[in-house]
Computed example of a mutant assay.
Amino acid sequence: MSKKTDEELNFSVKCLKPNGEEVTHKYHKLLDVLIERNSSAKKVMELFDACDLIKAGELVDGELCNMKGYTFQRI
């Protein structure tokens, strides 16, 4: 990865868990989890769509990226 890309991925994401707990993770850490959960070819396009929405700061329903019950938003 180039340094510019690293900087672009170094933002925080607010995650609301199904139990109502709110946690904050760096995007690159969340991305590792999302890639692991969406490694099949069938899920790749949904993963890209969800990640683009997170990067844009929109509220993302975790069901879009195989994380039912979670929501994510860039902060």
Rank of each mutant, 00 (worst) to 15 (best):
M1R: 11
K3W: 09
T5W: 11
T5I: 12
T5N: 09
E8S: 12
L9Y: 14
N10G: 03
F11C: 06
S12A: 06
V13N: 06
V13H: 06
K14C: 00
L16R: 14
K17R: 12
K17F: 03
P18L: 09
E21A: 09
V23H: 09
T24A: 05
T24N: 08
T24C: 08
H25K: 15
Y27S: 05
Y27W: 14
Y27R: 08
Y27E: 07
K29I: 15
K29Q: 12
L30T: 05
L31G: 00
L34R: 02
I35M: 08
I35P: 00
I35C: 06
E36C: 02
S39I: 07
S39D: 13
K42M: 07
K42L: 05
V44K: 13
M45T: 10
E46D: 15
F48K: 14
F48I: 13
D49H: 09
D49F: 05
A50C: 06
C51V: 15
C51Y: 04
L53S: 06
I54G: 04
K55L: 08
K55N: 08
G57I: 10
V60Q: 03
G62W: 03
E63L: 10
E63R: 10
L64P: 00
C65L: 07
N66F: 04
N66Y: 07
M67A: 12
M67H: 04
T71I: 04
F72E: 03
I75T: 06
I75C: 00
